[in-house]
Design a protein around this nucleic acid. Structure first.
Lengths: 233, 233
DNA sequence: GGCGGCAAGATGGCATCCCATATCGCAGCG
DNA sequence: CGCTGCGATATGGGATGCCATCTTGCCGCC
């Protein structure tokens, strides 16, 4: 392998415990999310450890991490397999994410302070700019950032942790970007309405608009996945 | 150690992959849930592996499992520590569980078939009997069973998986059993109302009563934890 | 007497070896 | 020609040893 001596150059200066395993998990997660590792692809401990110039131990831990993120299935003597992600799975996933973020939005409407609200407003405005100028990449990133901030600001660690886990699965759907202009407009509108509800400190409205927003997103992702499946068959 | 040669007698005839690690995790989880391992207690890999006559490898994996269940914190060079569980944590936890089970109840009201409804009815009736005769242990077990069945019957694997993870944390609160008669009555009433909503196929009612049911449970657990904390100080 | 530094022990992380078992191909028999 | 059984190989699981680092307590210096 020619790249053997180079790969460890961007090791993250191991600070936290099991940093290497986490790093390996990140690398593999990236490949899965970006589609380099297609659903059904096999991940063999020995192959990965050889490629990354590590022993099998951290790789093993990384695979466990990805497993309980739901990204891979591990079967004895067959290696890990990237789990399939279909329309139904997407709907199931977004149904739960909708529940979580809805709670978060509700809490936020009740408890958010001016400073945090301003921060959200700013992110929102940024996103609107990216939307207007048609910068989809930054639009999506800012969008994700807003969702993450909403969850974080809600101040319930259980929500944050659960959300982080599920969103890793959903991000996979993010790369089959929703380019349908109608949905895009609707999504932006829902974002605006959430901001309005937060400003008005209207718990119920915030929860409901955000719940629907995520269900709609789920439907869009499911639609794309369903179309893909139909085309493949 | 005198028990060294005996412990492996009830090894679970390793069928599934990493069965041993799972078994170790179960053992430790039990101890934590039952309070044998108090919050703040230290779990040292070498100690556990010696006690259970195993190598450190499966123990380590077990600790990782408990960690991402949120039951323990792992710090380098200090061993794992049982996480603390306070009133605020309980509320945060039950807030999310409420969200999940509420979705499940809603789905159930929409999609449940007669056979499944009958099964739930039977469990419910059993629970009512245990309640009437004052058999608290079986009452609680049947109660838990009902909650689990509701989640399972909803048919969303993401909900099931997430719920399983969180409920492991909440079970810890179960052992500080709610003996307040008023709350017990209220809880039973809420169970009855859920059954009524399911029979009526009333999604909204099912979701709402179940959400409140779990929030109330969370409040009760939090109250007990708060009282404990106050007494301890 | 208090405080800072140093040394020994404790502890988890990583590497490596061995093992049990599932998989897959091939050969030999029917 | 097809099916069965065996063996080689692949692969994950477990055990063990070494290492880096954190903790802790003690000793000496101020």
């Amino acid at each position: 392998m020619t790249l053997s001596d180079q790969t460890d150059s961007d090791l993250p200066a191991e600070a936290t415990p099991t940093a290497i395993a986490g790093w390996v998990a990140d690398v593999l997660r990236d490949r899965i999310v970006k589609g380099e590792l297609a659903p059904g692809a096999r991940l063999v401990e020995r192959k990965i450890s050889a490629e990354l110039n590590l022993s099998r131990t951290p790789v093993r831990e990384a695979l466990k991490l990805l497993h309980n993120d739901g990204l891979i299935e591990i079967s004895r003597n067959k290696g890990a397999m990237v789990t399939r992600y279909d329309a139904e799975g997407a709907m199931n996933l977004f149904e739960v994410i909708a529940g979580l973020e809805s709670i978060a939005a509700s809490r936020l409407a009740r408890t958010i302070g001016e400073a945090d609200l301003d921060e959200l407003e700013e992110l929102h405005d940024q996103m609107m700019v990216f939307h207007k100028i048609g910068n989809h990449a930054d639009y999506f990133d800012t969008n994700s950032l807003i969702h993450d901030r909403i969850v974080a600001l809600a101040g319930n660690p259980v929500i944050s942790a659960t959300h982080r886990r599920l969103i890793a699965l959903a991000r996979r759907g993010r790369y089959i970007a929703i380019t349908d202009p109608a949905r895009l407009t609707q999504s932006v509108d829902e974002h605006c309405r959430l901001m309005a509800a937060l400003r008005a400190r209207d718990e119920a409205a915030a929860a409901e608009v955000w719940r629907l927003h995520l269900l709609h997103t789920g439907e869009s992702v499911a639609a794309v996945l369903g179309a893909e499946a139909a085309a493949a068959s």
